[in-house]
Design a protein around this nucleic acid. Sequence first.
RNA 1: GCGGAAGUAGCUCAAUUGGUAGAGCUCCAGCCUUCCAAGCUGGAGGUUGCGGGUUCGAGACCCGUCUUCCGCUCCA
Length: 514
Amino acid sequence: MSQKPEDFFKNIISHCKEYGYIFPSSEIYDGLSAVYDYGQYGAELKKNLREYWWKAMVQMHENIVGIDAAIFMHPTTWKASGHVDAFNDPLIDNKDSKKRYRADVLIEEHVAKIEDKINKEVEKAAKRFENFDAAMFKSTNARVKEYQDKIDNINTRFKTALNENNLAEVKQIIVDCEIVCPISGSRNWTDVRQFNLMFSTSMGSVAEEGNLIYLRPETAQGIFVNYLNVQKTGRMKIPFGIAQTGKAFRNEIVARQFIFRMREFEQMEMQFFVKPGTEMQWYEYWKTARLKWHNSLGLGNDNYRYHDHLKLAHYANAACDIEFKFPFGFKELEGIHSRTDFDLKQHEQYSGKKLQYFDPEENKSYVPYVVETSVGLDRLFLSILSAGYKEEPLEGGDTRTVLSLPPALAPIKCAIFPLVKKDGLPELAEKIVKELRMDHNVIMDEKDTVGKRYRRQDAIGTPYCITVDHQSLEDQTVTIRDRDTMKQDRVKIADLSKILDEKVSWKSLLKHLA
RNA sequence: GCGGAAGUAGCUCAAUUGGUAGAGCUCCAGCCUUCCAAGCUGGAGGUUGCGGGUUCGAGACCCGUCUUCCGCUCCA
């Protein structure tokens, strides 16, 4: 394939829309930026991915249980987690360099520069005088006092402006201080805008300040606030994990690349509670375990790599991503973070409740450390599609479009075709459909030539096609065709159920994890 | 948010200097039927992303707006 990567990506997006995988949200109203809906096949694939993750996490680990916390949480949750502060940035753009800065950082840097000047004055003076008293010098030297007044003035104004949420004043400070863009050197600034990455709404009928609540920007906090409930009612012993899947919401400044970065997205995460001091070995354990899980999907182990974080978030003492080779390059698919006891300690402080675990082996109580694995379901979905979407050249110059989805995850497991629409073949096909339908998502198709029907199923990723022909009437056998190899086997109708069970079972994936 | 490109049927795309919106595939009904998509007949599907403007007349020109893609930027 000599296609450009961006064309390839565009084709995937088109394919998703054409075959009922993903539609732009509210498309008849021109869509909503960075919001997408899953269609009839997309919903199935997404559900299957979620189920495989859940089985691998909860069903396969006796010390991991799952919960389903609400999207709405007490507002103090987000103060404790640090999101209220960390997700609130006043931003400003320089119109000439097109660079964006945090307004507070610009002002702080400006203040730091003035402080440097003071320090230089002090240094100079120190060289001139013996028995130099720096404090005395600072409080008496006119030039230093002038600088110090400036700093105090700026800080006071800035503090007031932030408290009053007065963004115009923040800009005025930047203008008054004659702060220039480090790149362009110009003072051609846009207005200051507040970017709050959390969506907010109000609870109750009266929209008052006190009723402001947020749509959760991550699902993790729902686990942290429930960890003792689960530990006590489930009689969990450390180390143990709590898993959860659910929607989270972030008001991204720029949300792009199809379903890779959406404003509403679904996370699948597991918080693993461990004894302090053992967190690094569990961090390594989950790094390995999660990569193994991804590899079990069979998309190609070369498509994954680790990316260790050098700059760590405020809550973490180690962090890495599992990246996937998307059509637009290696990008984060899953994060594995050693979150320490930061979150639980914060919640202890803000709630005033003890969140300690009594360790019977040690005979003492402590706040556990947490190792987190968090994968984006939508990104996972995209990884499956990017690796599975193929435009395959065939003999005779033809190409076929095929979605090579892992069979256990495919929306439709099997399609049943009567070779022709007469001689009792449709009736026999119907009978097979009714039998297989009890266990699997199957469909029947009798329109158009059989070759065309194969191609239709290839395009939606159906792994198997069963064709009922004239021989079927005589000896009760049918052909079963494999999507990827296009090879056919003749098998007994009576064996179909068993054959299909084996090919598309969860076991076919889960066995790779053992 | 900035810059570039684009938006016409479900999909891929046409439509001369502004002059009747079209094709192929798809879809539906029927005929035929030979195991890897393009056999025959008929049919459905469009306020050309949306809103203004210029014009006798706009898919095309102008303004605004929305969405998407690419590059910057951002990503606790």
